Simulated assay, not measured.
Amino acid sequence: MAKAFSGGAGGDGSGGSRAVRGALTVLAVLTAVTVGSCTVQTDNLDDGARSPVRIEVSHPPADGKPAGTATPTPTTTPKRATPPPAPPPAVLWSRGDTGRDVRELQARLRQVAWLYDGPTGSYDDLTESAVKGFQGKRGLPVTGKTDTVTWQRLLRMTREPGQWELFLMGGQPAAYPDPRCLTGRVLCISKTSRTLRWMVDGQTVSTVAVRFGSQYTPTREGVFSVYWKSRHHVSTLYDSPMPYAMFFSGGQAVHFSTDFAARGYGGASHGCVNVRDETAVAAIFAEVSNGDKVVVYW
């Protein structure tokens, strides 16, 4: 009985070793089942030999996401830079400015009925008021200064003014004197530039803007002389005042005209040479003498 027991337990020891290994295998399987988070893999199971048991433990990720899932890198949307404020429109002309450009501004303001005087070429209080009215009507900042926005708006609403629109109230450059004006004391009158030069020995003493007769009552051209001066003259034919009259051809004279001062070249004389600057014509009247030459030319 003792021998049989010894042989059954392993005899030479091999049987006992197989029994121990089998028990360990069962224990490992039970452990895998109990733990639940581990798996047991066995290869080449047979009666003679078994491969080593490999146990792989899979730990759940700390963030709860499946293994192998990349965690996206948080991105920050850049803030859009605030653009700097637009610069105010540049001022082209304002009160006190003078010149040809101011004349054009005034002529265009006349076209849209915001200015009734001028053009004078001087940005005065009337021009400033006209610009303010134009700006306010169009919803622009009311400054009275002509900036680029105001000017562009006015350009779109008007046309290019003609030469006489620019010099409606005078101030145009005088034409070169006729050769007959270069000697002696002369009232040198150009129909082309609509100007009168008071000249002494070829030198211009003063220049004023003038207007002439209409198509039906034209001012005569040629060389004449002053034959009569009348400070407070009133026309017997038209019953109109002709102050500072200097007669040179029949009833035609150089004199101050309130109508020319008010309307500019929108009107015409009955043949006389009208002057709109009363102060200037008064000074010329004081210097001119009977017998002084008068030249009227194109």
Rank of each mutant, 00 (worst) to 15 (best):
Q152T: 14
A107F: 01
A113C: 11
Q135Y: 07
A113E: 14
D147Q: 01
G121A: 07
E104P: 09
V102W: 03
P119C: 09
P141W: 07
P119V: 05
V142H: 06
A130R: 00
V102Q: 03
Y116P: 05
T146I: 03
F134Y: 15
V149N: 14
G121I: 06
Q106F: 00
Q106T: 06
T148L: 07
T150P: 04
P141Y: 04
R108A: 11
G133V: 05
Q106S: 05
E104W: 04
Q152P: 00
Q111F: 11
V149A: 14
Q106I: 04
T120Q: 05
G133L: 09
D124C: 07
E104F: 01
L140K: 12
S122G: 12
E104H: 01
R110Y: 09
K145H: 08
L109F: 09
F134E: 11
S129R: 07
T150H: 02
D147P: 00
D117V: 11
P141Q: 08
S129K: 06
T146C: 05
R138H: 15
P141H: 05
T148C: 02
W114G: 09
Q152L: 09
A130T: 01
T127C: 00
D125K: 08
T146A: 05
T127L: 00
T120M: 07
E128P: 03
R100T: 08
L105M: 04
R103W: 05
Q152A: 14
V131Y: 02
G118H: 00
Y123S: 00
W151R: 03
Q135V: 11
Y116H: 14
Q135L: 10
F134C: 04
T120E: 03
P141R: 06
W151Q: 03
L126M: 00
T148Q: 08
S122C: 11
E104Q: 12
D117T: 14
Q106V: 04
R110H: 13
G144Q: 00
L115W: 01
V102P: 02
L109I: 13
W151C: 08
G136A: 13
A130F: 01
L154R: 11
R138S: 14
K132C: 13
Y116F: 13
G139Y: 08
R110L: 10
V142A: 08
L154Q: 07
D147H: 02
T143R: 09
R103H: 05
A113K: 15
G99T: 01
K132I: 07
D101R: 01
Y116L: 10
S122T: 12
K137H: 14
K137N: 15
Q111I: 10
K145V: 07
F134V: 08
Y116D: 15
R103T: 02
R100Y: 08
Q106R: 09
R110V: 10
D101H: 03
A130H: 03
L109K: 13
E128A: 09
G139T: 14
R138C: 11
E128S: 06
D124F: 05
D147W: 02
L105F: 02
R103F: 02
P119G: 07
S122R: 10
W114I: 07
L109P: 14
Y123M: 00
